[in-house]
Design a protein around this nucleic acid. Structure first.
Length: 543
RNA sequence: GGCCCUAUCGUCUAGCGGUUAAGGACACCACCCUUUCAAGGUGAAAACACGGGUUCAAAUCCCGUUGGGGCCA
């Protein structure tokens, strides 16, 4: 039996790969496959490789390749080697992630060499059977209750027949002779899995000499790239015996295999577009942090064996082990992602979270940066403290607002955010000239319109008396607490500050949920606060 | 249809024959805090698919059934 090495010590020879086809946006399931390959390689201090499997020219698109690359980098899943496309980077500083990916479309010569070798050694042969012919045979076999596989007709073609057919330009495929045998795989996750090759028939390995099929090019590349561990989704388990047959025909070593359970949608089928957002870029745009995404997908199908739930990429590398990967599929639970995202958002410093939120506010046109080069504000990084702190913005209501003030606003909402994108709807009232709401929203519990007008009058009166320089949350709290005792008695709502604070909050925000009114009033300032209280009165009086 | 994989609370999972009247997390519910919403705190409810074995003892091992999934066609 093949020894299942647990690789418990460091093994720097470990080489893993992530081999996506660029036929769609970078998928959350692919991200997890990439992550696990990365974690295992890093854990062993080995290498992790990115290989773009773009042999299917019809379906491959560089847009998708870019999406994969961009998001891998964003997540911090960086590969260790690859072609360097930019000369300058060879002489200059060359760091991980600067490498391009390996592309199968650039390696057809390599596959061709092996294809010719197999043909020469008579381990593979040209097959000229037409699709109609094959379909007819298939139907017949099924009708008599047999499982269908190719009957090997073209394996017996003479040298002359082959040449004649080729000369005539007949369409062909290349088939590999498949010996009838049992293939046993010792999957690192699933244990022993057996396949019978008799059910396969002679498999197609290429459409022509320049067009190898996925199973063939993959097997070649895993060998050429000295991959030791093939970690991939369970959907590839059925492909494994085919690849092993190819390896055996070519005399290659066999890598270790580990087939990950699939990530499922709520209906338990493989997670796909019809379940909603599945691409990493969509989650990123929606305001999920990479920390949350990494933490989430790592814990889908893997767990450390203790009760730790919060994991950084670094900690994952430290604790990761293939043995702890589960066997059954896991449903992707967006609520848990939300929880993790909220958690990581709360961990951020105010500068970090402001930097993260700013693009959303700008995109919603709530604020516009007042600087010559607008690009700078979107890409600021290190100079945050020194430079950006001076930056000014123009609000939607065309008032100037400093970054310092925006920071204050965001810090009020930091612990309320589940996703960065929510910052827009939560804080829009700070930036808008006019806020719209139903007047009934102003009423607290059993208050009448008369009570409400009385309270709003009182608020205006009291707040007007406070000097501009004393218009801060602590003072406001002290003064309004005192006032609410009086008005509470008058309105028969003793001890219930809501009769004063609820209308105030709604007048300032137009929302039924928000941060505290004292903090909000301080940021809005005395003039704006009083203006909004008056607007509330007018709303009630239908003016 | 054939082959293969899989099965613990609604969800993610711990459990690797006896310290388990099955533990944690998310979600849900209640309470506390509180002007609202969050956050935080406390607590509740919630699962070993089924049937056979093996064993003194099974969620844990074996077989089957059923369910779910994947691949191929």
């Amino acid at each position: 039996m093949e020894a299942i090495s647990s690789f418990s010590g460091k093994n720097k020879n470990v080489r893993t790969r992530f081999a996506p086809s660029p036929t769609g946006l970078f998928h959350i399931g692919s991200a997890r496959t990439a992550l696990f390959n990365y974690l295992f390689a890093k854990k062993e201090e080995g290498s992790f490789i990115l290989r773009i499997e773009d042999t299917d020219k019809e379906r491959s698109n560089s847009i998708f390749e870019n999406d994969i690359i961009e998001n891998l980098k964003w997540l911090g899943i960086l590969w260790d080697e690859g072609p360097v496309y930019n000369e300058e980077k060879i002489n200059g500083k060359n760091f991980i992630g600067d490498y391009g990916p390996y592309r199968q479309s650039e390696r057809t010569e390599i596959y061709k060499k092996y294809l010719e070798k197999l043909l020469e050694e008579k381990k593979a042969y040209y097959c000229f059977c037409t699709p109609e012919e094959l379909e007819a045979k298939r139907q017949y076999q099924i009708s008599i209750g047999n499982p269908y596989h190719y009957d090997g007709k073209c394996a017996g073609l003479s040298e002359k027949e082959i040449l004649d057919n080729l000369k005539q330009g007949k369409k062909y495929v290349i088939r590999l002779k498949v010996p009838a045998k049992k293939i046993e795989i010792n999957d690192l996750i699933r244990g022993k899995v057996e396949f019978n090759t008799e059910l396969l028939g002679d498999i197609i390995i290429a459409k022509d000499l320049n067009a190898p099929l996925f199973n063939f090019s993959g097997a070649i590349d895993d060998f050429e790239m000295k991959i030791t561990h093939v970690i991939r989704g369970e959907d590839h388990l059925s492909n494994t015996p085919k690849q092993i047959i190819i390896q055996e025909a070519l005399g290659f070593y066999r890598p270790y295999y580990a087939h990950l359970p699939l990530i499922l949608g709520p209906d338990k089928s493989k997670l796909s577009k019809r379940h909603g957002a599945v691409s990493v870029s969509e989650y990123k745009k929606d305001g999920y942090l990479k920390e949350a995404l990494i933490n989430m997908i790592a814990l889908l199908g893997w767990n450390p064996g203790n009760e730790k739930e919060i994991y950084s990429l670094k900690e994952l590398i430290k604790d990761f082990s293939i043995e702890k990967i589960n066997k059954s599929g896991a449903i992707f639970n967006i609520k848990k992602l939300d929880y993790l995202n909220g958690f990581y958002i709360r961990q951020k410093s105010i500068n970090e979270i402001t930097e993260l939120c700013l693009p959303y506010l700008i995109e919603a046109r709530l604020i516009i940066p007042i600087i010559k080069e607008q690009e700078r504000i979107l890409s600021f990084k290190n100079s945050f403290e020194k430079e950006i702190i001076q930056e000014k913005f123009l609000t939607e209501s065309e008032k100037e607002i400093s970054l310092e003030e925006i920071k204050k606003i965001i810090s009020l909402y930091q612990e309320r955010l589940k996703k960065l994108s929510e910052v827009v709807e939560l804080t829009d009232f700070f930036f808008k000239k006019e806020i719209k709401y139903e007047k009934d929203l102003l009423k607290w519990k059993t208050m009448t319109e008369k009570d409400l007008l009385y309270v709003l009058d009182k608020l205006e009166e009291i707040l007007s008396k406070i000097e501009e320089k004393d218009f801060n949350k602590d003072n406001l709290k002290e003064i309004l607490d005192l006032e609410s005792e009086k008005t509470g008695k008058e309105l028969n709502m003793i001890g219930d500050r809501g009769h004063l604070l609820w209308p105030l909050r709604v007048a300032l925000t137009g929302k039924e949920a928000s941060a505290g009114p004292f903090e909000i009033a301080e940021i809005l300032g005395k003039d704006e606060t009083i203006k909004r209280i008056r607007a509330a009165k007018n709303l009630i009086l239908d003016k």
